[in-house]
C-alpha cells in the first residue's frame, strides 16, 4: 500500500562514498579501513551507471574534530549532474552553508543534530527542508533501537523511533538510517528497523547498512518500505554495477530510473 501510493516516484539507488583522508574506504563495522578509490572518479563512474544520487560521508570528521574535506567535496561535485549529499563533521549553521557552497546539494547532520536539535530547524528554515538530511545510526537494545553518535561510538540513550519523529517535526527533509547491527555484515539491511522508522515519519527514508547482494536491496525497498537504498561495498569492489541492480529491481516490479532513450 505504501509503495502503491507513491509509485510514480522511482526508488533511488545511492552509492555511498565513505571518505577518509581524501580516499574512499569501506569500513567493516566502522573499523579496519581499506582504500578503494578516488572520490570524484568513483562518483562519476556511478553517475554513468545510472546512480540516482551520491552520498559522501567524511567518516572520521566527528571523531577527530576535523572540518569536512571541502576541497574533495568540491572536486566531487564538479563531476556530477546528479544530487550529492555530504555528511560527516557538520557541526554548525556555518558548516552547512560552507558545505552547500562547496557544491553539495544536501547536507547530512548526525552528531550535531543530537547535541543541538535547533540546528535542524534553523537550517531547514534558511536553506529549505529538501537539503537537510538527518543521519541516524541505530543499534538494537532490547525491544527498541538506540541512537549512537560520533561515528557510532557513543550511545545516547535516545530512542531511534522517537528521534526520527522529532527530526521530522523539526523540518528535516529526509532520514538516512543506518543499522549499526547490520552495517558491515553484508547479511542484509535491518528490515524491521527500516520499516518501523518509515511508518513513523512522513518524510523519505534512505536505508543503509548490511547490503551484501542485490536481493538485500529488493528486500529493503519492498519489505522495509524504504524510499531509497544506500550501499557501498557491493559497488566499490565491482561486484555489481548500479545498472545491474536496477535491472533486477525492475524485474521485481520496483520502479527505477533507467535513462531509456537518452544515451
Amino acid at each position: 500500500m505504501e509503495a502503491e501510493r507513491i509509485e510514480m516516484l522511482t526508488k533511488r539507488i545511492i552509492p555511498c562514498l565513505d571518505v577518509k583522508n581524501g580516499e574512499v574506504v569501506k569500513g567493516i563495522c566502522f573499523k579496519q579501513l581499506k582504500g578503494v578509490g578516488d572520490p570524484p572518479k568513483l562518483a562519476k563512474a556511478y553517475q554513468d551507471q545510472t546512480a540516482d544520487e551520491i552520498v559522501f560521508l567524511d567518516i572520521t570528521a566527528s571523531l577527530d574534530n576535523r572540518d569536512t574535506m571541502l576541497e574533495v567535496v568540491q572536486r566531487t561535485a564538479e563531476t556530477l549532474f546528479i544530487p550529492l549529499t555530504v555528511g560527516g563533521g557538520i557541526r554548525s549553521f556555518t558548516d552547512v552553508r560552507k558545505t552547500l557552497s562547496s557544491g553539495a546539494d544536501k547536507v547530512s547532520i548526525n552528531t550535531a543534530a543530537i547535541s543541538k536539535p535547533k540546528l535542524i530547524t534553523e537550517c531547514a528554515e534558511a536553506f529549505g527542508s529538501q537539503c537537510i538530511v538527518v543521519a541516524i545510526d541505530a543499534k538494537r537494545k532490547g525491544d527498541s533501537w538506540e541512537v549512537y553518535t560520533h561515528s557510532g561510538t557513543k550511545p545516547t540513550e535516545i530512542d531511534a523511533i522517537e528521534w526520527s519523529k522529532e527530526v521530522c517535526e523539526r523540518g528535516c527533509g529526509e532520514i538516512l538510517l543506518t543499522s549499526m547491527d547490520a552495517d558491515g555484515t553484508k547479511m542484509g539491511y535491518d528490515i524491521e528497523l527500516t520499516r518501523t522508522v518509515v511508518r513513523s515519519v512522513n518524510i523519505p527514508v534512505i536505508a543503509s547498512g548490511g547490503c551484501g547482494k542485490i536481493e538485500h536491496i529488493v528486500d529493503v525497498l519492498k519489505n522495509g518500505e524504504a524510499d531509497a537504498a544506500l550501499a557501498a561495498s557491493i559497488f566499490h569492489y565491482g561486484q555489481h554495477t548500479v545498472r545491474e541492480v536496477k535491472e533486477i529491481l525492475m524485474r521485481e516490479g520496483i520502479p527505477v530510473r533507467m535513462e531509456e532513450g537518452l544515451r
Binding site: E2, R5, I6, L9, T10, K11, R12, D52, S129, Q130, G173, E174, N202, I203, P204, D227, A228, R257
Partner: peptide, 8 residues
Amino acid sequence: DRVPQMGW
C-alpha cells in the same frame, strides 16, 4: 504521505 517529494 511523504513530503518533500524527493527523487526522480
